[in-house]
C-alpha cells in the first residue's frame, strides 16, 4: 500500500490467534448473559423437559416384568431422554445462532466484526456444550429423585468419552443447520426444527433402531445420535469397558470428522451466498 494512503493503525482492533481465542469467549459470555436474562423461559423449558422425561420413564415403569427388567427399561429410557436433551441443546443452540441474531437485529454487527467465522462457531459451540451439559445434569438430578437409578457397574469415563465425541458431529450438524436461515430467511428455522425432529425419530432415543422400517433404519446409520445412544447404553447399562466401545466410537468420530469440516464449508458458502443476494438481513 502506498505510504501516503496508509491509515493510522487501529489502536485496538486485535488480530492473531490470541485475539481469536479471546473473541470466542465473547460468545460464551454473551449467551450466558442472555440465558440469565431469559431465566424465566429457561425455568419453563426445564420444567417441560423434566415433565416429558418423567412421563416417558413412567411409561417404562408401567410395563410388566421383573423388578430388574423394569429398572433396566427405566434406565434405558432415562439414558435416551437425558442424552437427547444434551444433544438437542447442542444442536439447537448452534443451529439457531443465525436465526436468533437476525431476530435481535445484531447479525450484521457480528458478521462485520474482525473475527474469523471459525472463532464465531467455536464460541457458540463451546457455550452450547457447557449449556447442554448443565441442563442435562439438572435433568438427571431431578430424575434421580423420582426413579431408582443404580449406576454401580457403569463405565462412567467411557460414557463421557462417547458423549463428548458425539458432540463433535452434533456441532457439525448444528453449523450446517445454522446456514439454512442464510439460504432461506423465512423458512430456515423451521427446517432446523424438522431436522432435529427427524434425528429424534430415527436415532433410537426411546427404542432400538431395529424396530424402525428399513428406510428409517438406513437414516439411523448416518445419525451420530444413534451411535452415541448405543455407546452410552453399553457403557452405563452393560458396564462395557472403554476398549469395547470402539464399534460405536469409530462411527461417531468418523461422522464428526466429516460433519464438522462439511458444516464449516457449507456455512462459509451460505454466508457468501447471503452476501451476494442480500439475505444476511431479513427483509420485512
Amino acid at each position: 500500500m502506498n505510504e501516503s494512503i496508509r491509515p493510522r493503525p487501529n489502536p485496538i482492533a486485535g488480530s492473531g490467534l490470541g485475539h481469536e481465542v479471546r473473541a470466542s469467549w465473547a460468545f460464551v459470555e454473551r449467551n450466558f448473559y442472555i440465558v440469565r436474562r431469559y431465566w424465566g423461559w429457561e425455568f419453563a423449558f426445564l420444567i417441560f423437559n423434566v415433565a416429558s422425561s418423567m412421563s416417558v420413564l413412567y411409561i417404562g415403569e408401567a410395563q410388566g416384568g421383573s423388578a430388574a427388567e423394569q429398572q433396566n427399561l427405566v434406565l434405558y429410557l432415562g439414558i435416551g431422554t437425558v442424552v437427547w436433551a444434551y444433544l438437542r441443546a447442542v444442536f439447537s443452540n448452534i443451529g439457531e445462532m443465525i436465526t436468533w441474531e437476525r431476530w435481535e437485529g445484531t447479525i450484521e454487527y457480528t458478521m462485520m466484526a474482525p473475527i474469523s467465522r471459525l472463532t464465531h462457531m467455536l464460541g457458540v459451540s463451546l457455550f452450547s456444550i457447557v449449556y447442554g451439559l448443565a441442563r442435562s445434569a439438572l435433568l438427571l438430578g431431578v430424575l434421580a429423585l423420582f426413579f431408582e437409578v443404580d449406576l454401580g457397574g457403569a463405565n462412567l469415563p467411557g460414557a463421557t468419552l462417547i458423549l463428548l465425541a458425539g458432540s463433535i458431529s452434533f456441532i457439525g450438524f448444528g453449523i450446517m443447520a445454522a446456514s439454512l436461515p442464510l439460504l432461506f430467511p423465512e423458512r430456515g428455522e423451521e427446517m432446523t426444527f424438522v431436522i432435529s425432529s427427524v434425528l429424534l425419530l430415527v436415532s433410537g432415543v426411546y427404542y432400538p433402531v431395529s424396530v424402525l422400517p428399513g428406510w428409517m433404519e438406513g437414516m439411523a446409520t448416518v445419525s451420530p445420535a444413534t451411535y452415541v445412544l448405543e455407546g452410552m447404553r453399553a457403557a452405563l447399562l452393560d458396564g462395557a469397558p472403554t476398549t469395547s466401545l470402539g464399534g460405536d466410537l469409530l462411527p461417531i468420530l468418523l461422522l464428526g470428522a466429516l460433519a464438522l469440516p462439511l458444516g464449516i464449508a457449507v456455512f462459509n458458502w451460505a454466508e457468501r451466498f447471503a452476501k451476494r443476494t442480500g439475505r444476511l438481513k431479513r427483509s420485512g
Partner: peptide, 21 residues
C-alpha cells in the same frame, strides 16, 4: 441493533470483546 434484553453494558462488552477489548 442490540440484544434488547441485555443491558447496554452487556451489549457493549460483547461487541468490544470481538474487537479485542
Amino acid at each position: 441493533s442490540f440484544f434488547k434484553k441485555l443491558s447496554p453494558q452487556e451489549n457493549l462488552l460483547y461487541a468490544l470483546r470481538l474487537y479485542g477489548r
